[in-house]
């Protein structure tokens, strides 16, 4: 039996790196007593696959890993509770979902390889609010916005704007309500966003409730990954063209809301299988 675990990572643990998160969950699974499957060989390891690493200092409600269990007569609910009981402050198990049995002769689909989109909630740091808001408005109006991206094998040009499918802004003008500057209508909106701001989530993410904030839905995964860093660099460039101000390298704090896979042209949450 394969399961997909969705978890939140927040508070001080936003400074925990990806490898340490993986280690943490190996230990947590061992403590929980969940019947995890091990690989063969002299040094067996738990069969686990983690989705996209989160940048240091970011919080998230959309972290995922898949793992294989050695038993199948255990309920999703029980697994979820057993895991949650071993969590320390800063980790929260949001859901556990059983994955459908793989069709014979098909390639194994792990959480990692399915990722196609991501949604982020960003909050300008004090002093950057107005400039960032102007920049994002300008950015939304562009048809394309290209930027140099450093990769392992040299730099390449990425059209950041083309990888963006929704931008919503909440400001004091809008009384905190989300107003979409861009919306391709291909992303499932997390249900708690429909009714406002997902307060439960943003409590984890941010220190205060002050606005503006903006939401941004992007392409993600191995093919065309638009990271928060790329978005921030784009906004900094636009800001400097617009007003001549140089925003600090860290101009906003960010929270990952969800990861998505694509199905029939639509982005649906990784936890929906």
């Amino acid at each position: 039996m394969n399961i997909r675990v969705c978890f939140s990572k927040y508070d001080r643990l936003r400074f925990l790196g990806h490898l340490d998160v993986m280690r943490y969950f190996q230990h947590a699974i061992a403590r929980s007593g969940i019947p995890i499957a091990y690989s063969q060989g002299f040094h067996p390891h738990m069969i686990m696959s983690f989705a996209q690493p989160l940048a240091l200092s970011m919080t998230s409600d959309g972290e995922y890993f898949d793992c294989e269990l050695s038993a199948s007569e255990i309920s999703e609910q029980d697994i979820c509770e057993s895991l949650q009981n071993t969590m320390c402050d800063g980790f929260f198990i949001r859901s556990v979902t059983a994955l459908p049995e793989r069709e014979p002769n098909t390639r194994k689909q792990t959480g990692m390889s399915q990722i196609a989109g991501a949604m982020y909630l960003c909050e300008p740091l004090p002093g950057c609010e107005a400039t960032l808001l102007d920049a994002i408005t300008k950015f939304a109006e562009c048809d394309s916005f290209c930027i140099e991206k450093k990769a392992k094998n040299g730099t390449r040009t990425v059209d950041v704007r083309a990888g963006i499918h929704a931008i919503g802004v909440a400001s004091s003008d809008s009384d905190g309500a989300l107003q979409y500057l861009v919306d391709d209508h291909i992303f499932d909106t997390p249900s708690d966003l429909v009714s406002g701001w997902g307060r439960e989530r943003s409590e984890h993410a941010f220190h205060s409730e002050y606005t503006p904030r903006f939401l941004i839905a992007v392409d993600a995964g191995s093919e065309n990954n638009i990271s928060v860093e790329l978005i921030a660099s784009s906004l900094r460039q636009i800001a400097s063209q617009l007003t001549g101000t140089t925003l600090p390298e860290r101009c906003m704090s960010s929270h990952r809301m969800e990861l998505y896979r694509i199905s029939e042209g639509h982005m649906i949450s990784l936890s929906k299988v």
Partner: peptide, 16 residues
């Protein structure tokens, strides 16, 4: 956050 992002292995200093 600024300092924690500037230093090597910030997890050394966060406890938890």
């Amino acid at each position: 956050d600024d300092i924690l992002l500037r230093v090597e292995k910030p997890a050394r200093y966060i406890g938890g």
